[in-house]
Design a binder for these strands. Structure first.
Lengths: 114, 114
DNA sequence: CAATTACATAGCCGTATGCCTAACTATTCA
DNA sequence: TGAATAGTTAGGCATACGGCTATGTAATTG
């Protein structure tokens, strides 16, 4: 069982901000330059750059520079790991509910057939 | 399309800490008192209580007090919403890949049949 | 070459986070 | 009733976060 704790820390933290989620939602549609990403937000460029840094250092996006333009694109792996963690927990929870359900059924059967 | 932004902020933030994820993982197994939750951690009680407050105010757990014991249990709805947001983004991403794939196939067919 | 464009860096500022200790309240047990 | 237990509140402290302005640098464009 690998330990993704640090990754998850960074990934969930990156997702905890609406600006960063919006950037992700935008990049899901396809790559974009920093200026394009900044355009919808009423925010100074350096502030948005910081968000991009959080996203990139969390492994949620990648970027590369050609000339003076930096192009960002999504990197879905960490997104998947975050989803997997939640899904895993929920699966355990569902399993617990199933076992509780089974138990209740068993109990009821016992009562029904004394 | 409802706007869960604030919920997601709180939920993802709550998940961005390993102690809080461990608490969730514990509570997935079943309810527990504050002391039981605190036991595995080398952390002063008030520090853990703060984590519990973050989890509860983010709607990830609930708690109630009987006598001097507060019992906490999981509340899976926000977990699901967080998962749904990620799943939605990933679905869009997959869709994008599929369309790209289709496009490439079409292009190749065109090349194959000049 | 000069001006514009697109990003990058530095540094400031107020608030939030995560941890702690100390002291307090309310139950429960002997 | 007195002592132990379970949680709570108050407040302090260092660091991180999220925003800003001002300034710098490198690539394009006229």
């Amino acid at each position: 069982m690998p330990n993704y704790s640090d990754d998850l820390d960074h990934t969930f933290r990156a997702l905890a901000d609406p600006t960063r989620r919006a950037v992700i939602a935008r990049l899901i549609q396809g790559p974009a330059s920093v200026s394009e990403l900044a355009e919808p937000f009423d925010m100074a460029m350096p502030s948005l750059m910081q968000h991009l840094r959080v996203l990139e250092s969390g492994g949620l996006i990648r970027s590369s520079k050609q000339g003076r333009v930096r192009t960002c694109h999504i990197e879905p792996v960490q997104l998947q790991r975050a989803q997997d963690w939640i899904a895993g927990q929920r699966a355990l929870w569902e399993g617990r509910l199933d076992r509780l359900d089974d138990y209740l059924k068993t109990t009821r059967s016992d009562e029904d057939a004394p």
